[in-house]
Amino acid sequence: MTTVTMTVNGKNVSADVAPNTLLVDFIRNNLRLTGTHVGCDTSQCGACTVHVDGDSIKSCTMLAVQAEGADVTTIEGLAANGDLHPMQASFKENHGLQCGFCTPGMIMSAVDLVKRHPNPSEETIRSELEGNICRCTGYHNIVKSVKAASEKMGG
């Protein structure tokens, strides 16, 4: 076992974990933040996407110990003081989700996407979200949600 310490959603957390513990398992099992999901075993689906030091990361590709000292944000930490992040609100407003399973990862990727491309075209949005699989929506309303949110986020 090894001790890891990091900041998650603004709180300092520390736990003893097996050295091969994935960041996603640390988040889900140790911290009980179950909004971050696991949808595949090959880092393809993106359901586990979180922000590590401001960048979107598939948390199944990273060991918990690699996030030592990092500042991690999960879907649970995205809303500020009870106010939804514009991306969260936009997914609801534009019916950008159905079953909701891919949604946390999709939103975390989308926030990062808009940070890097403040006024993204449909093509850019589709290309940037290539690493997040949704089986329900056909992406039509996800693209619409991201576009609408980007306008609200001051793009």
């Binding site: 971050t36 909701g100 949604t103």
Partner: peptide, 13 residues
Amino acid sequence: DQRFITGNGNYLD
């Protein structure tokens, strides 16, 4: 949607 967009869904795992 509120619970799904905030990470508060309750899926089996």
